[in-house]
C-alpha cells in the first residue's frame, strides 16, 4: 500500500524511474510473512495439549466383561463400546455379510483375527454423534434414539439416516485378555 501512496502523495517520487520501488515491496512482503508466521502459535494452541494427548490411549482388561455384555468406557471424551458377543450374534453378523449394505464391510473386517468375540467400537452414531443404545433396533445391534439409525451386531448401519458403520478405532491386543485402544 505504501508504495502506491508514495507515488500518489509525494510529487518528488515522480523523479524516481522505478515506480514500484523494490525496497518498499520487500519490506511489505517481510511484514506480511512475519505476520503470518506469528499467527501460527495462536492457531496451534487450540490443538490438543500434551497432557490431553498423553491420556489418549487406554488399556482395558477384557476379563471384566461377561458374554453378551457391553462396557462403555470414556476414550478421548467419547464413549467406547467393548462388546463380548455371543456365538449367535456373531453368526447373525456373518450371515448378513452378503446383504445389501449401505457401507459394505464383512464382519471379519470389523474385529481382530481370531477374536470374533470382541467388538470394539467408537460409541458415536455416524449420523450426528448421539450415543446408540445396545441391543436395540431391528437388527439386535445398536439403535440410535436421536434419529432412528439401526445397527446390526457387527455395528454396521442397516436402516436410518446414518451414512456409515460405527467406527472401529485403532486398537491392539496386548495379551489374550488385554486391549490397548489408541
Amino acid at each position: 500500500m505504501a508504495h502506491t501512496a508514495v507515488d500518489a502523495t509525494n510529487p518528488a517520487a515522480g523523479d524516481d524511474p522505478s515506480r514500484r520501488d523494490f525496497i518498499h515491496i520487500a519490506a511489505i512482503t517481510a511484514a506480511a510473512g512475519g505476520g503470518l508466521a506469528a499467527v501460527w502459535p495462536f492457531v496451534a494452541q487450540m490443538n490438543p495439549a500434551a497432557d490431553t494427548l498423553a491420556l489418549a490411549s487406554v488399556e482395558y482388561d477384557l476379563t471384566k466383561i461377561e458374554p453378551a455384555q457391553q462396557v462403555t468406557i470414556n476414550w478421548r471424551g467419547k464413549p467406547l463400546f467393548i462388546r463380548n458377543r455371543t456365538p449367535e450374534q456373531i453368526a447373525a453378523a456373518v450371515k448378513d455379510d452378503g446383504a445389501a449394505l449401505r457401507d459394505p464391510q464383512t464382519d471379519a473386517e470389523r474385529h481382530k483375527e481370531g477374536k470374533a468375540q470382541w467388538l470394539v467400537l467408537v460409541g458415536s452414531c455416524t449420523h450426528l454423534g448421539c450415543v446408540p443404545t445396545v441391543g436395540g433396533g431391528e437388527y439386535g445391534g445398536w439403535f440410535c434414539p436421536c434419529h432412528g439409525s439401526h445397527y446390526d451386531t457387527s455395528g454396521r448401519i442397516r436402516k436410518g439416516p446414518a451414512p456409515t458403520n460405527l467406527v472401529v478405532p485403532d486398537y491392539a491386543f496386548l495379551s489374550d485378555t488385554k486391549v490397548k485402544i489408541g
Binding site: 508514495v6 518528488a12 520501488d21 518498499h24 519490506a27 517481510a30
Partner: peptide, 13 residues
C-alpha cells in the same frame, strides 16, 4: 529493510 524504506520515503523531505 524498514529503515531503508523510511530513508527512501523521506529522502526528498
Amino acid at each position: 529493510m524498514l529503515y531503508a524504506s523510511y530513508r527512501r520515503v523521506w529522502k526528498n523531505e
